[in-house]
Design a protein around this nucleic acid. Structure first.
Lengths: 231, 231
DNA sequence: GAAGAACGTTAACGAAACGTTAAAATGTTG
DNA sequence: CAACATTTTAACGTTTCGTTAACGTTCTTC
């Protein structure tokens, strides 16, 4: 699975160029144009690395780095500095950055830096990344039993967690009812079935804000979790 | 315990200057003047990081880096390049370097790079080494069984220590209850579980002064130690 | 379109889990 | 063994979660 990299850069030209370069190198690059959407993007997915411009229209990269650090202690952060001012570099490192690169930069230089940093942080990320599901605007972390949307993190119960995990493993496909019942209760009778219905209702409520997410029922067969978007 | 840094640099002036600077910053710096003594030094001790000059009298830093990599997959390597040639940088990264810095350099810039790289490589081995954990405003030293806040040092008991260590290793993540029970008692029954609850209550009391620290319960699953950061 | 089965949702109940304090048991040290 | 520290058990109040019941809606079949 390709590493996801978040780019926050207000210069659209430079941003798109960087994005297409990283994509061509086998990464999955997401571009945001300001602090606000940058943070939103960060909260809405799991990234292996962030590349932040120092100066942004609605603030600066340093503040954004701190916000990101608050939420994730380990994700590597690289700064893009227009000037090679020592002061900028130091501010970057103090905000929790791992490295910086001065514009204009040689793309291969950036690529090698990215590789070096990812190599070092891979062990860290791999444990968390593979276990997260993106469901519409929500992020589901079955390991921690959390369902987060932007700033809001909701901790769900063990049973809800197990059911949602099964639904996610077959996203956009039918998850058979008896399959869930056997997996969670070890047996499949009328009452367990009703219990499952209650849990489905609860999950639907959690996703009520996002109209693209649906848990459809397939009569007397099972349920389908679907979100309109591309995962 | 100071981090040991190996410097391999043939320009004695620059080498000594760098050595004394790093020493003044609290590191333990060893200086070697060529590839041969550099490798000897590396093999004769354990270093947290290597800083290599590109051009050396009896070879170059790239070859040395490869030799070092052969023996240690993980030790961070920083190159000093006289020129800012892209080619040199790429050769450096290909030899397994983590970063480079062009001479003449601002010492503080190097210092921050060193800090950033050490921070990242320390996290990796944190599961192995019994280093200290930072928990909010507290410092937890599992080796000495101490929990200190400012001037105040409290010695905690063996069981408290073990439990807190497990929680710290998974900070902001769920530590499963049965995992703790098996690790400490070798079995997981009702009474051991109640005992664990008592210890959790004690730990909570120790952290009562710092409202950012929480030991949350995840019903029938386990506990989460968190200090302000959002998981 | 009528009847029965399956589903959607809400609320209430009770069992199990948890939080905390104190006392009893166990271990340690001089 | 005596004084002390540590751990376990007991006890009691509080919280949480899963199940069930109840009632309404939708779907399927004849």
């Amino acid at each position: 699975m390709a590493s996801k990299i978040l780019i926050v850069e207000d210069d659209t030209n430079a941003g798109l160029l960087l994005q297409s370069f990283l994509t061509s190198e086998g990464y999955q690059a997401k571009l945001a144009l300001n602090v606000k959407t940058g943070l939103q993007s960060f909260l809405g997915d799991v990234f292996s690395m962030c590349i932040l411009d120092c100066s942004l229209p609605d603030g600066d990269g340093f503040g954004l780095a701190k916000e990101i650090r608050l939420r994730n202690e380990h994700v590597p952060i690289i700064f893009l500095t227009a000037r090679s001012l020592l002061d900028d570099k130091i501010r970057g490192f103090q905000s929790g950055a791992d490295d910086y690169i001065t514009k204009p930069f040689e793309t291969f230089e950036l690529l090698y830096k990215i590789k070096a940093i990812l190599r070092r942080s891979q062990v860290q990320v791999s444990g968390v990344t593979d276990s997260c599901f993106k469901i519409g605007s929500y992020l589901f972390d079955p390991k921690n039993q959390t369902l987060s949307s932007g700033e809001v993190v909701r901790r769900i119960t063990a049973k809800e967690n197990e059911i949602l995990k099964l639904l996610c493993l077959k996203k956009n496909q039918i998850t058979r009812k008896d399959e869930i019942l056997i997996a969670l209760w070890g047996e499949s009778d009328y009452f367990k079935g009703r219990s499952l219905d209650v849990f489905i209702a609860k999950l639907r409520k959690y996703f009520a804000n996002d109209s693209t997410i649906e848990i459809e029922n397939v009569h007397s067969v099972g349920f389908i979790l679907s979100d309109g978007g591309i995962s």
